[in-house]
Design a protein around this nucleic acid. Sequence first.
DNA 1: ATTCATTGTTCGTATATCCGATCACTGTGT
DNA 2: ACACAGTGATCGGATATACGAACAATGAAT
Lengths: 300, 300
Amino acid sequence: MNRSNFGDIRIFVEVARRGGFRAAADVLNLAPASISEAIQRFEEKLEARLFQRTTRAVVLTPIGEWLFERSQSAVIDLEEAIGDLHNQKGQVAGTLRLSAPYSAGPFFLDDLVARFAVSHPEVNVEVIYDDTKVDLLRSGIDAAIRSTTLLGADTHAVPVGPELEVTIVAAPDYLKRKGVPKRPNDILNHDAICYAFDHGRNLAPWGFKGSQGHFLVQPKPRMVANDMRSLILYAQRGLGLAYLYREIAAPYINKDDLIEVLSKHVSPLPRYSLNYISKRHMTSRLRAFIDMAKVNEKSK
Amino acid sequence: MNRSNFGDIRIFVEVARRGGFRAAADVLNLAPASISEAIQRFEEKLEARLFQRTTRAVVLTPIGEWLFERSQSAVIDLEEAIGDLHNQKGQVAGTLRLSAPYSAGPFFLDDLVARFAVSHPEVNVEVIYDDTKVDLLRSGIDAAIRSTTLLGADTHAVPVGPELEVTIVAAPDYLKRKGVPKRPNDILNHDAICYAFDHGRNLAPWGFKGSQGHFLVQPKPRMVANDMRSLILYAQRGLGLAYLYREIAAPYINKDDLIEVLSKHVSPLPRYSLNYISKRHMTSRLRAFIDMAKVNEKSK
DNA sequence: ATTCATTGTTCGTATATCCGATCACTGTGT
DNA sequence: ACACAGTGATCGGATATACGAACAATGAAT
């Protein structure tokens, strides 16, 4: 669906509200002829008649009535959104605020943070598990651990934590019904159980290695969540193929529970990145934490 | 305001969702050049910068972020309206989007969602674990499970899930150093390991019962996180008293690891609330899920 | 019955948007 | 250090949409 449907819906709703093309034209700053032509094109696209016309009036058809009621509130919301746009425009002490994906905690971050807290008794530590994009300038977060290096003015990054093995698993029952994928692109013909970032806005693509190097395949999501424990349960219930951190899936991998597929094809994910802003006044507690993270890094 | 703003918002939201012009172009069946030009014209019209660009990526500006969150749900509604136009038979299909706190998954939600998905093969399900406030009108979320009933126009709530037992625990080493609290208010003289909601903006108060009924005490946080697994590890390291769901803490409660304190004083938490808007157009898939949640409730 | 005002429709022309090709920039791999 | 892949930006030409003018139809006023 492209952008013009949205313009058409806007016109359609205004005509329905006003009961006529000329009145709608006045509101929309368009010529009545433009309204007439736009509605005709829209009706052709939808293969549906939205208005009954006479030479003096327009009346909604039943399907036009349905679409009007179905879409009016959303149109109002978008009008208000645009209207409102114009109304809009730290001694080693204190609280260290970190953002990290949930998966980082058990892997390495809990231990690092606990050791930091022990060795810096005057620092309170706040770890917010979250995987959305963080604006280090404005969010009040001191440093963000993410799977990638964050882009931004004066943002620096330090690699932390272990390299991450992943695996693709499914229930025996599912594989019996849908077959075992043999090559990476086979997953496009399967139901996928996908991990979501950014409050569901992004799905993690599935990473593979082949004779020509690394490549990504984006499967069709049947189940989506941002907690791998949920994804495991969905996989156990036979709802599809699940792409998971191996360490999390390992306890469930056996011939009766979850079966690994495409083992020779999946490739590990890169290490976490501890991102922070260097140009901004760096608090001593942040500096101390970064130093500890680096020492932690060297000790591996 | 004319029709083209609506087309522009459609493009804007898709770019924001996909994080790039080329990805959005794929979805919208437009050329990347068209997306680039359309966004530029839109920004000029609004006299506002919506995206920060580099030569490799686009990131929303704060005002772009605001517009995105403000308009996304309306865009989803309009997309669905057009999509549903061809398919008005009340079929239970599409994507059900739920928001819930992480703790809900293992307790009851994973099971409920998996059973719903099995019995409604045409519905995709997206569960976003999050504990921030959800604007059900604007977020594109169909229903939000939270520990409390959400306030809002036409918002209804159904109680779901089990009653939640909690416990307060500490390492033996910590109790040796700081003493064992005997009454609820004693915790004010201790280091507290606190669970955080809302990206750290709110801390869970600790609930107690006494001769005069229920009351809450807010301890001084030394360690804060929004994942109880982290809190357990901090407690094990002797960093303070931790207030945890009993079910999560139970495996670690023994005389060498974590010791329960104030057992006779803590009171259980109320059940989760499944919040949704009833007056707004309710999709058949949401109705079906609510019905299943209610049946789930009766079977306990 | 006739006239008039108002509506939606049609069409040739003007304007806005879309697109392919190309360019500049940047991160990654060698 | 260099080559390459992938991104957003630019621009001249192609295409889609907007518009003014004219037309057909209709209800109200006389």
